[in-house]
């Protein structure tokens, strides 16, 4: 379910690296918690992101959720297709619905993030704690 070469945050973002570019999105768990996504707010190309700081937001009928950048760096590409088709985040959160690509400033930041198996254990715990929220 959660790709082995991705790294994950506690706020349910994912990141993987191609060369010196980090691709960032939100996880399948996050999109399921949100439900139907109707709006995304994304940064501009050229904007500097800082690990742990808000990069944008994803909004569903139910709720709006800030998206935090897993890594620091300059935005080199934004998935503008999501403005017209935000539902792609529900359909393919780990693939087509990436949010931004960032030129990675400090690869060591990746080491602080969870691996796929760590993230799976983390969300299993989160589902248990929230009790009835998912089955």
């Amino acid at each position: 379910m959660y790709p082995q070469h991705y790294r994950f945050t506690k706020e349910h973002e994912w990141v993987y690296v191609e060369g010196d570019v980090a691709v960032i999105g939100i996880t399948d768990y996050a999109q399921r918690e949100l439900g139907d996504v109707v709006y995304v707010e994304l940064p501009e190309v050229g904007q500097e992101l800082t690990a742990g700081k808000v990069l944008g937001s994803v909004e569903s009928v139910k709720a709006v959720s800030d998206v935090y950048s897993p890594v620091s760096g300059e935005v080199v590409e934004v998935n503008t297709a999501l403005h017209q088709a935000p539902e792609k985040i529900n359909q393919d959160p780990h693939g087509e619905a990436w949010l931004v690509k960032v030129r990675l400033r400090d690869p060591a930041e990746l080491d602080r993030l969870m691996t796929a198996s760590e993230y799976e254990a983390y969300i299993a715990q989160a589902s248990q704690a929230s009790g009835s929220s998912s089955e």
Partner: peptide, 8 residues
């Protein structure tokens, strides 16, 4: 709150 999804 929802079964198949609010919009569906």
């Amino acid at each position: 709150l929802e079964f198949s999804g609010i919009l569906d």
